[in-house]
């Protein structure tokens, strides 16, 4: 019993401080707030169950790997649910409510949506791991299962497309002002 609660304390000290990182990463993967929260909770549970066996040198990349797995599992479930709902909606002749709309609540939510819409899923993920989670190329390579060279080129391309995206946006704004 003593050992078990000691483990909980170690988990609280080593893993829980990365809660924000986990949540942000889940959001960057394109999940709306409620979905991201579910994913993070599931990831923390799985992390807790696997904590005793953890031998990875760094906690953060390990936790983010679990978040990524949970995201993949959740997306699969959602697809199944979505298909069911679509079948139901088709049968009733009504459109499903837009879940994205509910997620857009504040300025930063809007900005995130805008950022995400300009990037492919791979670019989004790599950029988030580098700029938001501040992982090294090697850590990102291990986590996403690609060679370091691919991480390097993905990052560069993600940055380029984001730059173009923003330039276009600024031009639109300028036109709007005139």
């Amino acid at each position: 019993m003593v050992a078990a609660s000691g483990q909980r304390e170690r988990f609280a000290a080593q893993v829980l401080p990365h809660l924000d990182d986990a949540y942000r990463f889940a959001r960057w993967l394109g999940n709306a707030r409620a979905d991201a929260e579910d994913i993070v909770q599931e990831a923390m549970l799985r992390a807790f169950r696997g904590f005793a066996a953890l031998r990875a040198p760094a906690v953060k990349p390990w936790l983010l790997t679990i978040v990524r797995n949970c995201h993949v599992d959740a997306a699969r479930q959602r697809q199944r649910r979505e298909a069911d709902r679509q079948a139901l909606a088709d049968a009733q002749g009504a459109g499903a409510p837009d879940p994205q709309l509910a997620a857009i609540q504040s300025q930063s939510e809007l900005e995130l949506q805008r950022l995400l819409s300009g990037l492919s899923a791979e670019h989004r993920e790599t950029l988030a791991l580098r700029e938001v989670a501040e992982l090294s190329y090697r850590e990102i390579a291990t986590l996403t299962g690609v060679p370091v060279g691919t991480v390097m080129s993905r990052l560069s391309r993600a940055r380029e497309s984001l730059r173009e995206h923003w330039q276009a946006e600024t031009q639109e704004l300028d036109h709007g002002m005139r």
Partner: peptide, 20 residues
């Protein structure tokens, strides 16, 4: 800047703790 404005809510932290 965008990222930092997205923090895990206090509600989520509580949920996670009670799930654990």
């Amino acid at each position: 800047g965008v990222s930092e404005s997205l923090s895990a809510s206090r509600a989520l932290a509580t949920r996670v703790r009670s799930a654990l």
